[in-house]
């Protein structure tokens, strides 16, 4: 029973959604809409599960004094603090019954504006330093493949800046195909298009085959090992 019911739900919902795509008429179109709403409702409950899981995982790390337990403590305190100011709407100019949890001036807004936002932007800004360091070490012409990668990276990097256009601006119109912006665009639009489309088609075929196995009941790994 523990396995049969989930298998039946998966088979019915999966089959209905596939049929509804090809036959968008009653009753399938209505069912597709209903199933989508069920999914949205369940996704909301996933937040509660996620929160519980976060507390459990980090709580265990703290109680066992595992390496880096202090960071787990910061995570839990941060999570509970934001949850508290969000649920209680502390400092909301319109009070607890006020319109929005993110109302300007509320504590939740302050946490977002003065802690989360600068921290997020800082993390993003650090990327430039690590990209520079990684490029210096990784982009070495060790063999033919690495040399091609290096050349392409070089053209794209230059093509993404004004300098790329400046460097080859002296070339006559008849040699426009040699200018860096032109080459950068062609690499992205022709080679990248073709490669990515091939990968996407491959992934789609893989998804179709895996989905069919799940709907039919051949693949039951999502049910766990019990």
């Amino acid at each position: 029973m523990k396995r049969t019911i989930p298998l039946a739900i998966t088979a019915i919902v999966g089959a209905v959604l596939v049929i509804a795509y090809f036959i968008p008429h009653p009753p399938f179109d209505g069912l597709r809409e209903d199933f989508s709403i069920f999914f949205d409702i369940m996704a909301t409950f996933a937040f509660i599960l996620g929160g519980g899981n976060l507390i459990k995982m980090h709580g265990n790390r703290i109680s066992r004094r595992e390496e880096g337990w202090f960071f787990s403590l910061v995570t839990i305190v941060g999570f509970l603090l934001v949850l508290l100011v969000g649920l209680t709407k502390f400092g909301n100019p319109d009070g607890f019954r006020g319109s929005s949890v993110t109302a300007s001036g509320s504590y939740f807004d302050h946490v977002y504006e003065y802690i989360f936002r600068p921290c997020g932007a800082t993390m993003f800004a650090l990327l430039a330093f690590y990209v520079a360091s990684a490029s210096f070490r990784a982009f070495r012409a060790r063999n033919a493949e690495a040399s091609i990668l290096l050349l392409v990276a070089f053209i794209i990097l230059l093509g993404r800046t004004f300098v790329g256009a400046l460097l080859t601006s002296w070339l006559p119109d008849s040699l426009r195909f040699l200018t860096i912006p032109y080459l950068a665009e062609k690499i992205m639009v022709v080679l990248n298009f073709a490669g990515n489309r091939a990968i996407m088609i491959g992934i789609a075929l893989g998804i179709v085959s895996t989905s069919l196995k799940v709907i039919i009941g051949i693949d039951r790994s999502y049910l766990g090992s019990d």
Partner: peptide
């Protein structure tokens, strides 16, 4: 742009 040039220089 300047950072891209610095990265190109390092490469």
């Amino acid at each position: 742009t300047v950072t891209h040039l610095a990265i190109i220089f390092f490469i």
